[in-house]
């Protein structure tokens, strides 16, 4: 790391408060620059890629139900244990049938692990962030609500329900061969940027470090 020492003031600079005047000049210049304020309720902010907002279950276009296969991976990985699933099996070794899928969103920490582990791309965190409420009931999501959330997300018109791919369905830095078949869908180009690959080993193997990092070391 390079430490840049400030140049020592000389006597004249001390007497005439040059540094204070410089600072005052800066604030005066900033006064005439454009404000960076986003006037929120009237002017909405576009969430960036990988934004983790309101929970949803993807509606299967064929069955009109959810895609969930009740594998319980999301329940297992959830750090705040806010997901609960109930299922039954009609016959031994038969398919698991989902009875209920509930997310207590007030306990959720929005880590996105549930979406990352889901083998069938059933759950996701949408880009909608305006769902505060006056009661707890409406932020406790059951299966119907989660499916409705998906419909709402799709109705916003930015995405096609057939082609939409949530970035968390294919975590960065994962080898594509290690993923389940439904998860090999192409994610947006931005998301797979090599510099963003997670993990130490990947970083070392990836492209040479940016110049300013090299200067610091």
């Amino acid at each position: 790391m390079i430490v840049k020492h400030k140049k020592k003031r000389n006597l004249l600079e001390t007497i005439f408060l040059v540094e204070i005047l410089k600072g005052m000049g800066l604030t005066l210049r900033r006064m005439f620059s454009k404000p960076v304020t986003c006037q929120y309720p009237t002017e909405k902010r576009q969430p960036s890629l990988g934004f983790r907002g309101k929970h949803a279950l993807v509606r299967n276009p064929h069955t009109q139900g959810s895609k969930c296969v009740a594998c319980l991976r999301c329940v297992t990985i959830c750090p705040s244990q806010c997901i609960s699933i109930r299922f039954h099996q009609d016959e031994e070794n038969g398919p698991r049938l989902l009875d209920s899928y509930e997310i207590e969103a007030l306990r959720c920490i929005y880590c996105g692990y549930c979406a990352e582990v889901c083998p069938v791309n059933a759950i996701l965190l949408t880009e909608s962030y305006e769902y505060s409420s006056y009661d707890r009931q409406s932020i406790f999501f059951d299966q119907e609500k989660l499916l409705a959330n998906w419909d709402e997300f799709m109705d916003q018109g930015n995405h096609n329900p057939h082609t939409y791919v949530n970035p968390f369905w294919r975590p960065r830095g994962c080898d594509i061969k290690g993923l389940a078949a439904p998860r090999r869908k192409a994610v947006p180009e931005e998301w797979t940027r090599e510099g963003q690959i997670v993990g130490r080993k990947h970083k070392a193997a990836a492209s040479p470090a940016p110049p300013e990092q090299g200067a610091k070391q």
């Binding site: 900033r30 006064m31 005439f32 620059s33 454009k34 404000p35 960076v36 304020t37 006037q39």
Partner: peptide, 9 residues
């Protein structure tokens, strides 16, 4: 004044 100096409104 302070708002604009801090690039707010």
């Amino acid at each position: 004044v302070i708002g604009h100096m801090q690039m707010r409104m």
